[in-house]
Amino acid sequence: MSIYWLFEAQPENRQVYSGYFSGRCSRAMELLGYVEQDSSQLFHSTQFTLIWSDGYAPNTIHPELLNGAGEFQITNLTALAVMCYLNESMPQEKKGSPLTFSNGDGEQYALASYDDLQALVRNTLSQDQNDQLLGLCIKLGLTQPVEDLVGLQELASVIDDYF
């Protein structure tokens, strides 16, 4: 299944989003252990590339107009996590987020949190893929690691002893 994304900034907000994308993508690369290679590439990994381009090609954002579009497969875990990371703290406009996601039928998805990701991929990814997605999201700060269950069991035991 393909996920399509569209970014359309209002003209008065273009400067804000230009800095936002550059900084946020640079931080995502750092958090996921990738090395920045080219200033035209906002994000680059073997699985997903997002670039600045004044042409119209998939997964590009025009550096002056600050609009762009692209697609990725729902099984492309890096793209899924990075696009959620970008949207998670996206500065909002009066009409809402300028970054939207949909499927081929035009059904829109919210992708602004780990919970949104889980709702989208439910019954689509294998357990191994879910674990990989969780690992990426933890690295990006979209969710926290699952606490040590032994520690929780000990806490439950103390609570039971108290009552």
Rank of each mutant, 00 (worst) to 15 (best):
S2M: 13
I3S: 07
I3E: 07
W5M: 05
E8F: 07
P11Q: 00
P11H: 00
E12P: 00
E12K: 00
N13M: 05
N13I: 06
Q15Y: 03
G19T: 04
Y20F: 03
Y20G: 00
F21E: 01
S22T: 14
G23V: 07
G23E: 06
R24L: 05
A28C: 03
M29A: 15
E30A: 11
E30M: 08
G33S: 01
E36H: 10
Q37M: 13
Q41F: 14
F43C: 03
F43Y: 07
H44G: 12
H44M: 09
T46I: 11
T46R: 11
Q47F: 13
Q47R: 07
F48D: 04
F48K: 02
T49F: 08
T49M: 10
L50Q: 09
I51M: 10
S53T: 00
G55Y: 07
Y56W: 06
A57M: 06
P58M: 05
P58N: 04
I61D: 02
I61H: 03
P63M: 02
P63Y: 05
E64V: 02
N67D: 09
G68E: 02
G68W: 05
A69F: 06
F72P: 00
F72L: 02
F72Q: 01
T75E: 15
N76H: 08
N76W: 12
T78F: 09
T78C: 06
A81N: 00
C84W: 06
M90K: 04
K95M: 12
S97P: 03
S97M: 03
P98T: 12
P98E: 10
L99K: 06
G104C: 10
D105L: 14
D105S: 12
G106M: 05
Y109F: 15
Y109K: 04
A112D: 07
S113N: 00
D116N: 14
D116M: 09
L117C: 05
A119R: 15
L120Q: 12
R122I: 11
L125R: 06
L125S: 08
D128W: 09
Q129V: 11
D131A: 15
Q132R: 15
L134S: 11
L134I: 13
L136W: 05
C137A: 00
C137Q: 01
I138M: 04
L140D: 04
L142M: 03
Q144H: 13
Q144C: 12
V146F: 12
V146W: 09
E147W: 13
D148Y: 08
L149D: 08
G151L: 14
G151V: 09
L152P: 07
Q153E: 15
E154H: 15
D161P: 07
D161R: 15
Y162D: 10
